[in-house]
C-alpha cells in the first residue's frame, strides 16, 4: 500500500495503547467524565469485574481460538494443495468462500445448543470462524509462489520438506499473516457478542449498559473494545510489512 495509514504506524499504536491503558487501569478516575451519561443513582463505572480481568479474558479467548484455528487452517491448506488432498481442493475452496458468508452471530448462536452457555460456545464460534480467512489466505499464498521458483528449488536438490519450509512458507507468509489479522479482528467482535451467551469479556459491559440504559457503560466498554481491535490491527499490519520485505 502506497499511502501511510495514520493509526497503523508506531506513533499511532502508542497513542492507542496509552488510551487503552488509561481506560482500563484508570477506570475509576473516569467517573466525573462518564457520570453525566449514567442514569441517576446508577454507577458510572462497571464494577462487577475489573477491566483488567475483562480485557484479559477477552484477549485470552481470541488468542486460544485463533492459535488453534491458525494451526488447523494452515495444515488443511497445506493438505489440499498437495497431490494427496487434491480430491478435497474444489470443495474446500468453495466451502471457505461460502463459509465466510455465514454470519458470525449465527455460528455463535448455533454453538449454544451444542455445548451450552459460557465461554465454550464463544470459543468454538471464534475457532470455526477464524479458520476460514486463514485457510483462504494460506491457500492463496501457497498458490502465489511462482512455479519457476518451485522448480528452481527442486533443481537445487531440496527435499519436499525443505522446499516447503525454506521456499513456499516464507513466500506465503505475508498473506498468511493477513489472514490471521482478519481472523483476529473478526474474533474480537464475535467475542464481544459472546457475552450474550455468558462468555467472559468486555461485551458484558456494553450489554449491561444496553440492558440498564446506562450509556456510561456502553461508551466505556465500546471504547475499550474498539481501541483493542485497532491496536491489534495496527500491530498485525506492521508484522505483514516486516515479512513482506524479506
Amino acid at each position: 500500500m502506497k499511502f501511510q495509514q495514520p493509526l497503523r504506524n508506531w506513533g499511532g499504536s502508542l497513542v492507542i495503547l496509552c488510551l487503552l491503558l488509561y481506560l482500563t487501569l484508570g477506570a475509576n478516575s473516569l467517573e466525573p467524565l462518564l457520570g453525566p451519561l449514567a442514569p441517576e443513582n446508577a454507577p458510572a463505572i462497571y464494577a462487577r469485574n475489573s477491566f483488567i480481568d475483562l480485557v484479559g479474558w477477552h484477549l485470552l479467548l481470541v488468542l486460544i481460538a485463533i492459535s488453534a484455528a491458525a494451526v488447523i487452517a494452515i495444515l488443511a491448506a497445506l493438505f489440499v494443495s498437495r497431490p494427496v488432498g487434491a480430491d478435497f481442493l474444489p470443495l474446500a475452496r468453495s466451502l471457505a468462500n461460502l463459509g465466510q458468508t455465514l454470519p458470525p452471530v449465527a455460528v455463535l448462536a448455533l454453538a449454544v445448543p451444542a455445548v451450552g452457555f459460557g465461554s465454550w460456545p464463544t470459543l468454538i464460534a471464534l475457532f470455526l470462524y477464524g479458520l476460514l480467512p486463514i485457510f483462504e489466505n494460506t491457500l492463496a499464498g501457497l498458490g502465489s509462489v511462482p512455479t519457476t521458483v518451485k522448480d528452481a528449488a527442486r533443481g537445487l536438490g531440496m527435499s519436499p520438506l525443505q522446499r516447503f519450509w525454506q521456499v513456499e512458507l516464507p513466500l506465503a507468509l505475508p498473506l498468511i499473516i493477513t489472514g490471521i489479522r482478519l481472523s483476529v479482528i473478526i474474533s474480537i467482535g464475535t467475542a464481544t457478542i459472546g457475552s450474550t451467551v455468558a462468555a467472559k469479556g468486555l461485551g458484558e459491559v456494553i450489554i449491561a449498559g444496553i440492558l440498564t440504559d446506562n450509556l456510561a457503560f456502553v461508551l466505556h466498554g465500546g471504547l475499550i473494545v474498539a481501541l483493542m481491535a485497532m491496536l491489534l490491527d495496527g500491530l498485525f499490519v506492521k508484522l505483514e510489512r516486516r515479512f513482506a520485505t524479506v
Binding site: 495509514q5 456494553i206 450509556l215 456502553v218 461508551l219 466498554g221 465500546g222
Partner: peptide, 17 residues
C-alpha cells in the same frame, strides 16, 4: 478501514450515545 476494525457491538454502542 479503521471504521471497519471496530467490533459491531461496540459500534452500535458508540453510535447510541
Amino acid at each position: 478501514s479503521l471504521l471497519q476494525t471496530i467490533p459491531s457491538l461496540a459500534m452500535f454502542g458508540l453510535l447510541m450515545i
